[in-house]
Simulated assay, not measured.
Amino acid sequence: MSQRGPRRAYPDVFPAPAASDSTIPDAAAGLTEGDHGRLPDGTRRALVQLLRGPYVNRARHPRLWPSLIADEAAIRERLGDLFLELVLDREAGLAFVRNMTSAEADLPRVIRSTPLTLVDTVIVLFLRDRLLRAAASDRRVFVGRDEIDDATSVYRAASGSDAVGFARRVNASIEKLKNANVLLGTGEEERYEVSPILGMVFDADEVLAVTAELRALAGAS
Rank of each mutant, 00 (worst) to 15 (best):
E72M: 03
D89T: 05
S2R: 14
D150T: 14
P15W: 06
R4N: 12
Q49W: 02
I123E: 02
T186W: 00
V141P: 02
A19T: 14
S20W: 08
Y192G: 00
R140D: 12
D26E: 15
A16V: 15
R191C: 07
S195L: 01
E190S: 11
Y55A: 09
R98S: 04
P40G: 05
E189C: 04
L68I: 07
A135E: 15
L127Q: 06
T101G: 09
R52C: 06
A204G: 02
P40K: 07
L79K: 04
L198H: 08
R215T: 10
Y10S: 08
W65C: 04
G185Y: 00
Y55S: 09
T117I: 06
V207Q: 09
L31Y: 10
S173A: 15
E104H: 13
R133P: 01
I197P: 03
K178A: 10
L116M: 13
P6F: 12
N181I: 00
E175T: 13
L82V: 08
V13D: 11
I69P: 06
N57C: 14
V210G: 06
R78H: 15
E33N: 13
G165Y: 08
T152C: 11
T117V: 04
T121L: 08
T152Y: 01
A216T: 11
F166V: 07
V141W: 01
G144W: 02
L116V: 07
L132N: 12
D81G: 11
